[in-house]
Design a binder for these strands. Structure first.
Lengths: 232, 232
DNA sequence: CCAAAAGTGTTACTCGTACACCCATGT
DNA sequence: ACATGGGTGTACGAGTAACACTTTTGG
């Protein structure tokens, strides 16, 4: 059964992914209800082990696809977790990613270990609009999620990362709502973004282009935009 | 001989460290002349394998100490390198660190594989004041060093990272020279720092404190400063 | 007295931020 | 007609970047 032998001890290397999406205007993260010990019944981040024929980014993309069906999403590596006994079973080093997916394009599927994947609102995991995760998660995943949230907040405005939360075409109001749903969890965040400043910022940084057409949702129709090529 | 067996393949996990210092006003990096195949005779970054009782940061600190004698230096994790065949011998995933040490406090020592450690000026590895590494290094270490340099440039001014290059007490001119020795390799860098702006910046950000005493070096004596506690 | 590095303020500009009103449409 | 979200410009303050001369010492 144990087919792989080495002269020195080696850790298993895994990627853990904090997959975020927007549902009903609220930021959610995809979590797995563990079906086995250890931490049976607890929530954990999806993830899986690195294979010999892939690098870490490919591994994260593969796991993301296997567990959410999402393809080509924005993936961002943000940290390594290597404390010796973070997994009670055996030695595991995890590389943590965060991913942003558009709820419309995703269907959660049961993972390879037949555990259920669910969208959990951040508000159920953190209290008081701070990135402090108070919920109990399996392994050190509370710590990982906390760092993911912190990274996400820090980069929400700096890069075009929010675009991952949006459908292919979107209005600027939707985009602003997405940013606000993120920065709500910022440690320093007021949680409010000025509409005119946001629109000036978004047109200066050439992250989006007019996509033509109007959205008939709401009262007055709004211009549709799309992410500019170069960074899907 | 092969005492460790696992059900699935596992990579060896290593840390590779780009150790920078200042010698004669020039930025140098510590490299090992490999004594064995593969890449025998070529230069490589120092590094070593993760042990079961330590996390990645400890591993990097240990390797740094073993190969340079430096202790308590500033270590910054900046990337993972996991391409499947980056090591021709077997499967290795590397976590890359950069470290800044003060030349005065360091004695390079031969590593465990009895290979020689040498300080190599960046100007011998890169041409044209850009962080592009043109020298041939073992494995993918040119790529790693390139990313290390890019990170270093990006953070030279943003954080107190340069303080690692300086002795315990230093003058502001020395500190500015250290910053300039780094940003010289910046992709966007003019390579010049304004003296008055630098001094205002360094006193606003409370990174240093007056250490008392004057340096007799140079013509007119200069105030001595030291890194403020909280961040050595 | 001359060479060489230390030390010191002000101005212009850019960027971020705060703020209020009219417009187009569906009901 | 009115309620709802879409869309627009300006003024102030903070932070950044450009700029030159006097001071202190050793030779």
């Amino acid at each position: 059964m144990k087919k792989y032998s080495y002269e020195y001890a080696r850790p298993a290397v895994a990627t853990d992914i904090a997959v975020f999406t927007l549902r009903g205007g609220e930021l959610h993260v995809a979590l797995i209800r563990r079906g086995q010990e250890p931490f049976k019944g607890m929530l954990a981040l999806p993830g899986g082990f690195l294979r010999e024929d892939e690098d870490l980014d490919s591994c994260a993309a593969r796991e993301l696809h296997e567990e959410t069906g999402a393809q080509g999403a924005r993936l961002l590596q943000f940290g390594n977790f290597s404390e010796p006994n973070r997994d009670p079973r055996y030695w595991v080093v995890s590389v943590a990613y965060l991913a942003l997916v558009s709820a419309e394009l995703v269907q959660l599927v049961a993972g390879s270990d037949a555990a259920a994947v669910e969208w959990v609102p951040i508000s159920e995991l953190c209290h008081k609009a701070k990135p402090k995760v108070v919920a109990k998660l399996a392994f050190d995943h509370a710590k990982i999620l906390e760092k993911a949230l912190t990274e996400l907040c820090a980069r929400a405005l700096a890069t075009g990362i929010v675009l991952g939360l949006l459908p292919e075409k979107f209005t600027l109001s939707q985009m602003q709502a997405a940013v606000e749903a993120i920065v709500k969890w910022s440690p320093t965040g007021s949680g409010q973004v000025d509409k005119r400043n946001f629109r000036r910022w978004v047109t200066n940084t050439k992250l989006v282009r007019k996509a033509g057409g109007m959205s008939p949702t709401g009262r007055r129709p709004a211009q549709l935009y799309a992410a500019r090529e170069g960074r899907k």
